[in-house]
């Protein structure tokens, strides 16, 4: 695998702390596609918006992670919208020699330096670049109805993200189409999930999640590509559907859905038992 090692995996805080299933499915899927990936030792928070909301020093954190990747000579693979956005914005900011000099003064104390060489790509971007291989690898076409929710910060600002369309991205549609699954159009695929509202105003966040889930009702599963989306739309469904548990909808991470279509076993992808039952498959098959 080292011969095609291209990326260092950047989980971000939320996936590292609470969503090992997303990391697992990402690693299993990329391994199946022959895309080399290694962990990023000593990675930190990406800086935005958690630190950016308080200080311009967020850029030191983002640049620190870029420096770790650069030292390894690898590009960064992200799986959340906010980390992708933060690291891409920092990489752009580092083009300014004054910013770069200031950042490197800070990083020097840690024995690091950064030029901004390491590219930052969200999993969706990497998968789109390998969709021919992905298409060839589908061995277990899915007979599922799938609703989608796009991770907004992966695509915006458009001139920073430089991937897909900033207002009407289509990459998730294209990837799911490869699996044989039927896509259920919800009309709110491109709307922000609202998960970041949860720490400021819980009722507002829950109504945002409810709106998206209600629009997805004709689907067997909702598929996301971001830890923040997943946190609100999957982990908070108990609160969203308080008193209406029958409305709960299974939610998968994109690499879980794609991994299933590649014939990987559900438990290898961290897919929960309710979806396994929908698929009519054994968890170990």
């Amino acid at each position: 695998m080292t011969s095609n090692l291209r990326f260092v995996f950047y989980p971000g805080c939320l996936v590292l702390q609470r969503m090992p299933q997303y990391e697992l499915a990402t690693k299993r899927l990329l391994a199946a596609l022959g895309i080399g990936l290694q962990d990023m030792p000593q990675a930190s928070c990406c800086g935005a918006p958690v630190v950016e909301s308080f200080s311009d020093e967020w850029v030191y954190l983002a640049a620190y992670n870029l420096a770790l990747a650069e030292r390894l000579g690898l590009d960064v693979l992200t799986v959340c919208g906010s980390c992708t956005n933060s690291l891409k914005r920092a990489r752009l900011a580092l083009r300014d020699p004054e910013v770069r000099e200031d950042v490197n003064r800070r990083l020097a104390a840690l024995g690091l330096s950064v030029e901004g060489r390491a590219e930052v790509k969200h999993l969706l971007q990497v998968l789109m670049e390998h969709r021919a291989a992905l298409k060839e690898s589908v061995t277990a076409p899915l007979r599922l109805k799938v609703a989608l929710t796009y991770p907004c910060q992966v695509f915006r600002p458009g001139d920073v993200a430089a991937f897909d369309d900033p207002l009407q991205p289509q990459s998730m549609h294209e990837l799911v189409a490869l699996t044989g699954a039927e896509i259920v159009e919800t009309g709110v695929e491109h709307e922000c999930c609202g998960s970041t509202l949860y720490t400021s105003n819980q009722p507002l966040a829950l109504s945002a999640g409810r709106r998206k889930l209600e629009a997805s009702r004709g689907a067997d599963v909702l598929v996301d590509s971001c830890g923040n989306c997943h946190w609100l739309l999957e982990r908070m469904q108990r609160a969203i559907w308080a008193g209406e548990p029958h409305k709960r909808l299974p939610v998968l991470f994109m690499p879980q859905l794609l991994g299933l279509a590649l014939g990987l076993a559900p438990d290898e992808l961290g897919v929960n038992s309710r979806v396994v039952a929908l698929l009519g498959r054994d968890a170990h098959d």
Binding site: A48, S53, S82, C152, Q153, C192, G194, L197, S200, L204
Partner: peptide, 8 residues
């Protein structure tokens, strides 16, 4: 603080 940071 009610901004979702979606940058739309």
């Amino acid at each position: 603080w009610l901004c979702c940071c979606c940058q739309l």
